[in-house]
Simulated scan of single mutants.
Amino acid sequence: MDAPPPAAHTSKKRKFDRVDGQEPPGSSSAGDVVGLDFINTLPDAVLCIIISLLPTKDGGRTQAVSRRWRPLWRSAPLNLVADSSLSGQERKRVVYVSKILAQHPGPALRLALPYIRERYYGKIEGWLRSQALTNLQELDLGYDVEGFLPSSLPLPSSALRFAPTFHVASFSCCRFPDLSAQSLNFPHLKQLSMSKVIISDSSASSLNLPHLKQLTLYGVTISGDALHSMLTGCLSLESLLLQNIVGIGCLRINSPTLRSIGLSGPFNAKDATVFQELVIVDAPCLEKLLPLHPDSGPRTIQVIRAPKLQVLGVLSDGISKLHIGTTFFQVTVVFLNHPIRIPICR
């Protein structure tokens, strides 16, 4: 008598048993493919990359997948994002960040502390000195403050130790530290964003950003001279966004690489320097010039040399004078939400 066929559950078990043996793809039939675990056939290096791309909580949970996965989280570059996805309670987030930095040996890919109360300033200083953050590439750091004004607390000095390795950086609600006695180089930084930050003249002139591509300043307090000094150190800048800027009366742009500029002055001009004039001295690659909120400035726009300029953003009666090359326009009409294309004399 022939032996009875194996039970269905036995067949399924055998299919999953093949995972440990990691048979070559060609040795399995088409029906067996359904039961194969392709994730576990990947090398550890690839699994570590996957873990680094996961949200912080999910990356830590991979340690419970299996014995093989248990050490991978500590081998993967750390991706630590301390927002509501880590915990809805700030007190718990602080505890979790301390615990993670104590357990992970590094190196680090990303650290995001977007809304940390000022009372944890000392803890932030300690976190940023952690060995787990060696070779940190991305940092998002900001204090949780109310209102428009930036915090009086300085950016922790320990954050600047990552200047040689930063690729992306975002700072908010703080005062940039005084760097008058030194020059600070960010050789690999490509994107820099600052929101509600105070930047002094001496700090701006100390910054060297040779490979920066995108610079975004929102609600930043900075003088025209300081911003000019800062832009001088941006040798590869392509995109510049200046929104709700406080302290600039006249800004002169001289850049061989800029392709787009978006800008506006302070929304509330009371007790703030009014953004009066923008002068594009020489911008051979500039294609887009976008006044975002014309009523808040600049009142006068002068373009001396920008041979590739094709798009001029929304205009209003807030911009009273427009000079393009040798042509002068007295602006008397209103263009609402409609950027216009302009012919430029070469």
Rank of each mutant, 00 (worst) to 15 (best):
G219P: 02
L322M: 05
R259C: 06
P4T: 03
G60D: 03
S11D: 11
V274E: 07
I304Q: 14
I198W: 13
D271Y: 09
T41A: 13
R70Q: 12
H167K: 13
F267Q: 07
E138C: 12
Q276G: 05
A163T: 09
P6N: 06
M194Y: 05
T62C: 05
D83K: 03
M1W: 12
S236V: 12
D20L: 13
L155I: 14
S180C: 14
Q330V: 03
L153S: 10
D225T: 10
N268T: 12
N185D: 15
R341F: 12
Q137C: 09
E277I: 07
R175K: 15
V303A: 00
L141G: 04
M1G: 14
I253E: 05
L240G: 04
C285A: 12
Q131I: 10
L322E: 01
N254I: 08
P210G: 00
I324S: 02
I100H: 00
D83V: 15
L258W: 03
T56S: 14
A272Q: 08
E287L: 11
S264W: 05
A45L: 15
I245L: 06
N135W: 06
K12C: 14
A76R: 04
S206F: 07
V334R: 15
R129H: 09
P6M: 01
I301H: 03
R74Y: 09
A204K: 04
T56V: 01
H228E: 15
V279S: 10
V34R: 15
G249Y: 03
G325L: 06
I280E: 02
L258M: 05
V279R: 11
G59P: 02
S203Q: 06
P307W: 09
C173L: 15
I261V: 14
L322Q: 00
K196F: 08
R299C: 13
R346E: 15
T221C: 11
V94E: 01
R68H: 15
L42K: 12
S85M: 08
P77V: 02
T273N: 08
S316V: 00
R161W: 09
P164E: 06
S264P: 00
L207H: 03
C234P: 01
D2N: 14
V97Y: 01
D20V: 11
